[in-house]
Simulated scan of single mutants.
Amino acid sequence: MRILLEILRVMFIFLILMAILGTFFENLYLNIGNGAEKNSWISLIAIIILIFVLYRNKFQFSGWYEGEGKEKLPRKVSQILITSSIILILIPPIIAQLN
């Protein structure tokens, strides 16, 4: 039962944060006004990576699951993933500017 609750919790976290951040970046790209919203799907990949890092480093320790394997991502891996997410978020406006 705890595993099912944890799976539902993870899905809820991902869906809510994806909706909020996806809407934020979509509106941001629309306000830039250079056609960046056409490539906003790239920012969704960045959001998924950011939520994954956030879950692995914070949220997994406050849930219902009490099994093995609960450990933070190594600091270097977290830094690489966050940096790549930032780069992915910056790509749509750059691509739109080049076109």
Results as ranks from 00 to 15, higher is better:
Ser85Gln: 00
Arg9Thr: 06
Leu17Asp: 05
Arg9Lys: 07
Ile16Arg: 04
Pro92Leu: 12
Ile7Lys: 06
Tyr55Ser: 05
Asn27Leu: 15
Ile7Glu: 03
Ile3Gly: 00
Asn31Tyr: 10
Phe59Ala: 03
Asn57Pro: 04
Gly63Leu: 02
Met11Gly: 01
Asn31Met: 10
Glu71Phe: 14
Leu5Thr: 01
Ile82Val: 06
Ala19Cys: 06
Ile42Tyr: 04
Trp64His: 11
Leu21Ser: 08
Ile87Trp: 07
Met1Cys: 00
Val53Glu: 02
Lys76Leu: 14
Ser78Trp: 13
Glu37Trp: 03
Trp64Asp: 09
Phe52Met: 06
Phe25Pro: 07
Val53Cys: 04
Glu68Lys: 14
Ile94Trp: 15
Ile32Leu: 13
Glu68Leu: 13
Ser40Pro: 01
Lys70Glu: 09
Ala36Asn: 07
Asn34Lys: 10
Ile95Ser: 06
Leu73Gln: 08
Ala36Val: 07
Gln60Ile: 09
Ser85Val: 00
Ile47Tyr: 01
Gly22His: 10
Ile49Ala: 03
Glu66Asp: 12
Gly22Thr: 08
Ser78Glu: 14
Phe12Asn: 06
Gln79Lys: 10
Ile20Gln: 03
Asn39Gln: 09
Leu54Pro: 13
Gly67Ser: 08
Tyr55Met: 06
Leu4Glu: 03
Glu37Asn: 11
Pro74Gly: 14
Leu98Cys: 10
Leu50Asp: 09
Lys58Pro: 00
Pro92Gly: 12
Gly22Asp: 07
Ile87Phe: 06
Lys58Ile: 12
Leu50Asn: 10
Ile91Ala: 11
Lys38His: 09
Glu26Pro: 02
Gly35Ser: 10
Phe25Trp: 15
Asn57Leu: 06
Ile20Asn: 03
Ser78Leu: 13
Trp64Val: 10
Asn27Gln: 12
Lys76Ala: 15
Leu88Ala: 12
Met1Glu: 02
Val10Thr: 05
Met18Glu: 05
Trp64Cys: 07
Lys76Val: 14
Phe25Ser: 03
Leu28Thr: 12
Glu37Cys: 06
Ile49Ser: 01
Ser40Asn: 14
Arg2Asn: 06
Ile89Tyr: 08
Pro74Thr: 13
Asn34Ala: 12
Ile32Cys: 05
Gln60Thr: 04
Gly33Gln: 09
Ile7Pro: 00
Ser85Lys: 00
Leu30Met: 12
Trp64Ser: 12
Phe12Ile: 08
Tyr65Arg: 04
Val10Ala: 08
Phe14Glu: 06
Gly69Tyr: 01
Asn27Ser: 11
Thr23Cys: 09
Gln97Asp: 15
Arg75Asn: 13
Leu28Lys: 08
Ser43Gly: 11
Phe61Leu: 01
Ile86Glu: 10
Glu6Gln: 09
Ile80Asn: 00
Pro93Trp: 15
Ile32Gly: 03
Gln60Asp: 07
Leu21Val: 04
Pro93Ile: 14
Asn99Ala: 11
Leu90Thr: 13
Ile20Ala: 11
